[in-house]
């Protein structure tokens, strides 16, 4: 399946889902003529039309000049690389999950370490040192200097 076809199909699905959610927005006695559902419904219809144009066009060009659509993209076909991308994403998700418990500095050091290791492919003492000192620099910057209350985690209760 070529990419435009996939994009057009996903676009149509999104338009459908969004339309359904928009249509269920409750009516209000304070509503104007357009209403809270008005423009969302228009957006859904426009997206659906654009998606259909894309699908139609991709089906036509797919017969004439197969695969030219994908040549311009710098991201190769999914499959081999998707796991790497998902891994990168997972590091962020794990960070969000652990930061309330482990606190900002520890979690961030973990994130720095994990990403450097994941992308560099080697574990070394340097990575660990950079990760820990990097996390401390971030802490100084965001928590001490800017005064942003990043989670302290369990450490906040200990000290």
């Amino acid at each position: 399946m070529n990419r435009d076809l996939a994009l057009g199909t996903s676009g149509a699905v999104i338009a459908g889902g969004y339309y359904w959610l928009a249509a269920t927005i409750p009516d209000s006695a304070l509503a104007d003529a357009v209403g809270p559902q008005g423009l969302p419904i228009v957006y859904a219809v426009v997206l659906l039309l654009l998606s259909l144009i894309l699908v139609a066009r991709s089906l036509r060009t797919a017969n004439l000049e197969p695969r030219t659509q994908a040549l311009g993209s710098r991201i190769p076909a999914p499959g081999f690389h998707l796991p790497r991308v998902l891994g990168m994403l997972a590091i962020g998700v794990v960070y969000i999950a652990v930061v309330p418990w482990l606190g900002y500095v520890v979690s961030l050091a973990g994130l720095l370490f994990a990403v450097t290791w994941y992308l560099g492919g080697v574990i070394s003492r340097t990575i660990a040192i950079v990760a820990v000192s990097g996390a401390i620099v971030f802490w100084l910057l965001f928590v001490r200097l800017l005064g942003i209350a990043h989670p302290t985690g369990v450490w906040g209760q200990l000290f």
Binding site: Y18, L21, L89, V93, I96, A97, G156
Partner: peptide
């Protein structure tokens, strides 16, 4: 709305993390 199952799972994780974060004053 825009996203598939794997991502809504992310959202659930995020919410779970959020709910468990207790803001204690020290």
């Amino acid at each position: 709305v825009f996203l598939g199952g794997s991502v809504s799972r992310v959202a659930v994780l995020v919410l779970a993390a959020l709910g468990s974060a207790c803001a204690g004053s020290t």
